[in-house]
Amino acid sequence: AFSSEQLARLKREFNENRYLTERRRQQLSSELGLNEAQIKIWFQNKRA
């Protein structure tokens, strides 16, 4: 489960760009304390 802070950040990123570069995913992973797979799957689900 994502914290409300993490979700807000993911939604902001998604609004700016529906697709993440690998580098951006790595940055978000480290900033949010999530693993890259969690972020990747969140974006895939959000696009679906």
Rank of each mutant, 00 (worst) to 15 (best):
A1G: 13
A1P: 12
A1T: 13
F2K: 02
F2W: 07
S3N: 10
S4H: 12
S4R: 11
E5P: 04
E5M: 07
Q6E: 03
L7T: 06
L7R: 06
L7H: 05
L7W: 03
R9P: 00
R9H: 06
R9I: 12
R9D: 02
L10E: 00
L10T: 00
K11P: 01
R12E: 12
R12A: 14
R12Y: 10
R12K: 14
E13C: 05
E13R: 02
E13F: 04
F14H: 02
E16H: 09
E16K: 14
N17P: 02
R18D: 06
R18H: 10
R18Q: 13
R18M: 11
Y19M: 07
Y19E: 08
Y19N: 08
L20P: 15
T21N: 08
T21M: 03
E22M: 10
R23A: 15
R23K: 13
R24S: 05
R25Y: 12
R25H: 05
R25T: 15
Q26S: 08
Q27E: 13
Q27L: 12
Q27W: 09
Q27G: 04
Q27T: 09
L28D: 00
L28H: 00
L28I: 07
L28S: 00
S29G: 06
S29W: 03
S29M: 06
S29H: 03
S29D: 01
S30Q: 14
S30T: 13
E31L: 06
L32S: 02
L32Q: 00
L32I: 08
G33M: 06
L34F: 02
L34K: 02
L34C: 06
L34I: 12
L34P: 00
N35A: 14
A37W: 15
A37C: 14
Q38N: 05
Q38K: 06
Q38T: 10
K40H: 15
K40M: 15
K40V: 15
I41G: 08
I41E: 15
I41K: 12
I41V: 09
W42R: 01
F43W: 15
Q44S: 09
Q44I: 08
K46Y: 14
R47W: 13
R47C: 11
R47T: 08
A48M: 12
A48S: 09
A48K: 14
